Amino acid sequence: MNLIYRNAEEGDLSKLIEMLADDQLGADREDSSTPVNQAYIDALKVISDDPNNELIVAERSENSETYIIGMLQLTYIPYLTYKGSWRCLIEGVRVHKDHRSKGYGKQLFEWSIKRAKVRGCNIVQLTSNKQRSDAIRFYNDLGFKASHEGFKLMIED
């Protein structure tokens, strides 16, 4: 089934936060309370106002109803390396638990890679928490290679 891709809107936030919080790692770091935490609204505004960022939702239609089934963020980054190339960083990838293992994740990535090409990128990169073994297997199956070691530093107040 084909998906519809669009930029996220403020009205999508509760559904997106629900997907971000729906696993062992996200449950502790996200805030699913209502009303939506202002920090999410502020972040969406910054992302939406930045021409090098896109928070994308994937929807499917069924019986005249449209459902958000997935999301990810694309960040376009200029580099000096590779002769001044552009890269696309994919982050915050989620497919709703009711729609996993149906090919939607693959469609979402195929669309994202095409989008990166349209934006002039010659590298698509992502990170995944080492505890997400299913996600890592999925990325490997899509052709991504674990060619680099990634590092993160959490900055606390």
Results as ranks from 00 to 15, higher is better:
11 G>Y: 01
80 L>W: 11
123 I>C: 08
13 L>P: 02
84 G>K: 12
102 K>S: 13
41 I>G: 10
148 H>E: 14
67 Y>G: 04
134 D>Q: 12
153 L>K: 14
104 Y>T: 06
115 R>C: 06
2 N>G: 00
103 G>K: 07
117 K>M: 03
71 M>W: 00
104 Y>G: 06
93 V>I: 14
42 D>E: 12
79 Y>G: 04
149 E>L: 10
103 G>Q: 08
99 H>E: 14
97 K>L: 07
123 I>K: 06
67 Y>V: 09
52 N>R: 04
14 S>E: 15
102 K>C: 13
97 K>E: 08
101 S>L: 07
120 G>W: 01
10 E>Y: 03
152 K>Y: 10
100 R>T: 02
56 I>G: 03
129 N>I: 08
128 S>Y: 04
15 K>G: 02
90 I>T: 12
47 I>P: 00
66 T>Q: 13
25 L>F: 13
157 D>L: 05
52 N>L: 10
52 N>M: 06
48 S>P: 00
46 V>W: 00
136 I>G: 04
69 I>E: 03
13 L>K: 04
107 Q>H: 05
36 V>F: 04
27 A>I: 11
112 S>I: 02
51 P>A: 08
18 E>H: 08
94 R>V: 00
41 I>R: 13
69 I>C: 03
3 L>C: 15
5 Y>R: 01
41 I>A: 01
35 P>Y: 05
82 Y>V: 02
136 I>C: 08
154 M>L: 14
60 R>P: 00
75 T>V: 09
66 T>D: 11
56 I>L: 03
138 F>D: 02
